[in-house]
Amino acid sequence: MWGGRVGALPRVGGFWLTGVLGRKPSCNAASLKGNNSPQCWNCGGSGNLIEGDGFFCPQCRALQPPDPTRDHFSLMDCNRSFRVDTAKLQHRYQQLQRLVHPDFFSQRSQTEKDFSEKHSTLVNDAYKTLLAPLSRGLYLRNRKS
């Protein structure tokens, strides 16, 4: 789609995005067939959940559904602590929005558009929550298990 590369991810700073922070992307969508192996909703391929952030399928590059159990700290690549490096947080926020913002999915399937909106909303919520000390503290307190 972008720059003549069909199925490619957006280009940022002269580089084709292949994942977050230079890691390989992977599938994180749970199989609809009832087993525990992760499968891409689009191609049915399975990915390595250990590597990458799970935003895109490594085989077909389709955006995968967000993981509703993922906490804000892991999403924003921050230590689970009251002290947060806000410059790093802002950088991560911008990086994630360049990957999942709905504007980059206008020519994709409706499923990917929907996943993009959900990812973008989760990223916005995580950023706003972790940026403000009061909401960050409340989030930490409420997420303790």
Rank of each mutant, 00 (worst) to 15 (best):
80 R>P: 00
103 D>H: 09
16 W>G: 00
86 T>L: 15
117 E>F: 07
128 K>L: 15
29 A>S: 14
10 P>G: 08
35 N>S: 12
68 P>E: 11
105 F>R: 04
3 G>V: 06
116 S>G: 02
51 E>M: 02
58 P>L: 12
16 W>F: 12
6 V>Q: 12
68 P>D: 13
74 S>M: 08
127 Y>C: 07
84 V>A: 11
48 N>I: 04
3 G>S: 14
115 F>I: 01
71 D>I: 00
129 T>H: 07
61 R>M: 08
10 P>A: 08
127 Y>A: 05
115 F>Y: 14
36 N>D: 10
94 Q>V: 08
42 N>I: 01
72 H>W: 13
46 S>I: 01
95 Q>I: 04
145 S>T: 12
88 K>N: 14
19 G>E: 05
25 P>R: 07
31 S>R: 03
88 K>Y: 10
98 R>N: 15
45 G>M: 08
145 S>L: 15
20 V>Q: 01
91 H>P: 00
19 G>M: 04
99 L>W: 05
4 G>E: 10
6 V>F: 11
71 D>W: 02
89 L>Y: 04
8 A>R: 07
139 Y>E: 06
13 G>C: 06
3 G>A: 13
139 Y>G: 09
3 G>M: 14
69 T>A: 14
18 T>F: 10
97 Q>R: 14
74 S>Q: 10
91 H>I: 09
114 D>S: 14
78 C>G: 01
123 V>M: 06
75 L>G: 02
96 L>V: 04
134 L>R: 13
35 N>K: 05
94 Q>F: 10
48 N>G: 07
40 C>A: 04
145 S>K: 13
28 N>S: 15
113 K>N: 09
145 S>I: 08
12 V>S: 08
12 V>E: 12
48 N>K: 10
62 A>I: 00
46 S>D: 14
12 V>Q: 08
136 R>I: 04
97 Q>G: 02
1 M>R: 12
13 G>Y: 00
120 S>H: 10
37 S>R: 09
127 Y>G: 03
145 S>R: 12
140 L>D: 04
143 R>P: 00
25 P>A: 15
141 R>D: 14
101 H>I: 01
12 V>T: 11
102 P>A: 11
69 T>L: 12
63 L>P: 03
140 L>I: 09
137 G>E: 14
138 L>N: 10
135 S>F: 01
53 D>T: 13
93 Y>K: 03
61 R>G: 03
42 N>F: 06
